[in-house]
Design a protein around this nucleic acid. Sequence first.
DNA 1: GTTGAGCGTT
Length: 238
Amino acid sequence: MSRREQPSRCSLLVRNLPKSAKTEDLRYTAEKYGQVRDVYIPKDYYTGEIRGIGFVEFTEPQDADECKYGMDRMMMDGRELTVVFAQQGRKKPEEFGRAGGGGDRGYGGYRGGGGGYDRGYGGGGGHDRGYGGRDRGYDRDDRRSYGSNRRGYSPRRRSYSRSPPRRSSHRRSHHDDSPPRDAQREASPARHRERSQSPVRSRSRSPARSYSRSPRRAEDRVRSVSPRRSYSRSPSPR
DNA sequence: GTTGAGCGTT
């Protein structure tokens, strides 16, 4: 209980971010106001498109406040950015499984605090969004499915692959319009449950698997003297 | 040691 510091104090939420905005860009812009500890722009896990929001974490709350003031109402790419204090720090791996989809994550925790010039954010406090659920399209419950699974959702068991679904990598033959959610929903009539339960690709094949060896090992290998050629092998050509 | 799938869109 010693450290009574609200993470939100240093974390800022940037709304109305242009699709062209990138973490790098946001970071660069935020750094001008203070020391940015971290910047993150959440993107759709499936589509990879940014949602238009970004998070900027400052090392000091005062910097965050300044940045908030500076970046708020700032025009980026022709759009007016809206900067507000974040409500919570980063999501924890444990929350990943059950966060969001559930719906009520209990934002009530957010105390008005601050000055009160919050854009009504404090008022609602996430209680009632207003525009009726922010359904991105795909059901997050899907992912939560395994969480609800009686099996016993094991986070550590599941490797959190940081690799987003690089759909662009593969060439689309046709009908690429079909969103991912549809793909897994109707693409396979007799879909296998194990496949559709999590976005994370199965442990198909891990590249650079053999390279798992330590560099030190390689040295050992190189160390080996070439058995092919033996100096004792009639070194006398003539 | 940290984590990225974070609170959006009027």
